[in-house]
C-alpha cells in the first residue's frame, strides 16, 4: 500500500485548507471506497484529511417539509432518521439495500455520492481504463460487461454508477450543497453526476478541496408513497443489476405526480424523465407503465452480456409502479 500522509481536521475550513495545500490532498470520510481503492493502487492520494470529526452529520427537517442530510451523516443513521423513513421511504429503502450493515455504519452520505464505479477493469489497477488512466481504452466494452450500463454510455466508458441512495435522491430532485475554495454552492443532483462522454475521469463537478456539506431533499408529498426496488443475483450485499426508485401519486386512477429514477443500468443515477412525461396525467395502468418503461429504455445501447438489462429494467419499472398504484388503491383514499 502506497504511503500517504494523514491529518485530522476539526473544522470545515481547516479541512478544506489542508486538502488544498497539496495537489494530491483528498478528504477521507467513511473510507469504504477510498481505503479500498488506495490499497488497490487505483487511487494515489499523498495526503488524506480525515473529516469524520466535522459537525456535518446531522439530519434536520427543512421548513418545506424536506430534509437536510449532512454530508457526513452515516447511511445507517440516515436510513433510520424519522424524517427520512416517514417522509421519504425510498431513501431509507435504498440506503438499507445499498450496503451491508457494517458498511452502512461507516459510509457517509457525501462519500456515497462520490463512490467510485465497481467496474473490475477500473478496480484492478492494470487493465485499460479511460476512467482511471485517460486514453488507455475501455476493457469492459470488449470484455466482461454483464453488470455495465446500457444508458448514458460512451465509447470511452460504460461503467455503472454504483450508488443506490443516489438513485433515490435523483428521483426526489435533491440538491448537493458544497463548500470549497470558491465558496458555497448548491448543485441540483442531476447535474452533480456527469455522463462519461469523452472525459469519464470526471464524475462530478467538485473542485479540488470542495466538500459536500449537505444534501437537501425538498419536501414532496408524493414521496411519502415511494419505494426502492433492487434486483440482484444475490439476495443481499450486492450491487444492483437494475434498481428503481419510484414515487407516485395516483388520483382517480390517473398519475397526478411521478418521480422515477433507475440504478444499475446507467453511467449515472438515471432520472427517467421520458417515462415520467409519458405517465404524467395519464392512466395508472400496467399498460401505461410498460409503455413508459419502453420509451425510457428505447435509447439504450446494450452490449451482448448486458442486453438483458434493457428488458429487466422495464420489468422492474412496471413492478415498482404497479406496487405503488396497488398500494394507493388498497389505501382507498382516492
Amino acid at each position: 500500500m502506497r504511503p500517504f500522509a494523514y491529518a485530522r481536521a476539526d473544522d470545515v475550513d481547516t479541512a478544506i485548507a489542508t486538502v488544498l495545500a497539496r495537489p494530491d490532498g483528498e478528504f477521507l470520510a467513511g473510507g469504504t471506497t477510498e481505503i479500498d481503492l488506495v490499497r488497490q493502487d487505483v487511487l494515489r492520494p499523498g495526503l488524506l484529511v480525515d473529516i469524520n470529526d466535522l459537525p456535518l452529520d446531522r439530519v434536520d427537517d427543512l421548513p418545506d417539509g424536506g430534509v437536510r442530510i449532512g454530508g457526513l451523516a452515516r447511511m445507517s443513521d440516515v436510513a433510520e432518521a424519522p424524517g427520512v423513513a416517514e417522509r421519504f421511504p425510498v431513501i431509507s429503502e435504498a440506503l438499507l439495500q445499498g450496503a451491508s450493515p457494517q458498511l452502512r455504519t461507516m459510509a457517509s452520505m457525501a462519500g456515497n455520492l462520490c463512490q467510485r464505479v465497481r467496474c473490475g477493469y477500473f478496480r484492478d489497477a492494470v487493465s485499460p481504463c479511460n476512467k482511471r488512466d485517460p486514453g488507455s481504452g475501455c476493457a469492459a466494452i470488449t470484455g466482461f460487461h454483464r453488470g455495465h450500463a446500457v444508458l448514458g454510455t460512451s465509447d470511452k466508458c460504460i461503467a455503472t454508477h454504483p450508488s443506490d441512495a443516489a438513485v433515490a435522491l435523483v428521483a426526489l430532485d435533491a440538491v448537493v450543497r458544497t463548500r470549497g475554495p470558491h465558496g458555497e454552492r448548491a448543485v441540483p443532483i442531476d447535474e452533480f453526476f456527469l455522463l462519461p462522454g469523452d472525459t469519464p475521469e470526471r464524475e462530478h463537478p467538485l473542485e479540488h478541496g470542495e466538500l459536500i456539506t449537505a444534501i437537501d431533499v425538498p419536501g414532496a408529498a408524493t414521496a411519502r408513497r415511494s419505494s426502492y426496488l433492487k434486483v440482484r443475483d444475490r439476495a443481499s450485499y450486492e450491487f444492483a443489476l437494475v434498481s428503481v426508485a419510484a414515487a407516485m401519486d395516483v388520483r382517480y386512477r390517473t398519475v397526478a405526480d411521478i418521480r422515477l429514477a433507475l440504478g444499475g443500468v446507467a453511467t449515472k443515477p438515471w432520472r427517467a424523465r421520458t417515462a415520467e412525461r409519458s405517465l404524467l396525467g395519464g392512466p395508472a395502468t400496467r399498460e401505461a407503465f410498460a409503455e413508459a418503461a419502453r420509451r425510457e429504455l428505447a435509447p439504450a445501447t446494450p452490449l451482448p452480456q448486458n442486453e438483458f438489462k434493457v428488458e429487466l429494467a422495464q420489468r422492474a419499472i412496471v413492478r415498482a409502479l404497479t406496487a405503488l398504484a396497488d398500494g394507493d388503491e388498497e389505501g382507498g383514499t382516492r
Partner: peptide, 15 residues
C-alpha cells in the same frame, strides 16, 4: 458569497 479558506493547514505525515 465567497468563503475565505484561510485556516492554516494541518500537518500531515506519512511517517
Amino acid at each position: 458569497m465567497a468563503i475565505h479558506v484561510g485556516s492554516p493547514p494541518l500537518e500531515g505525515t506519512s511517517k
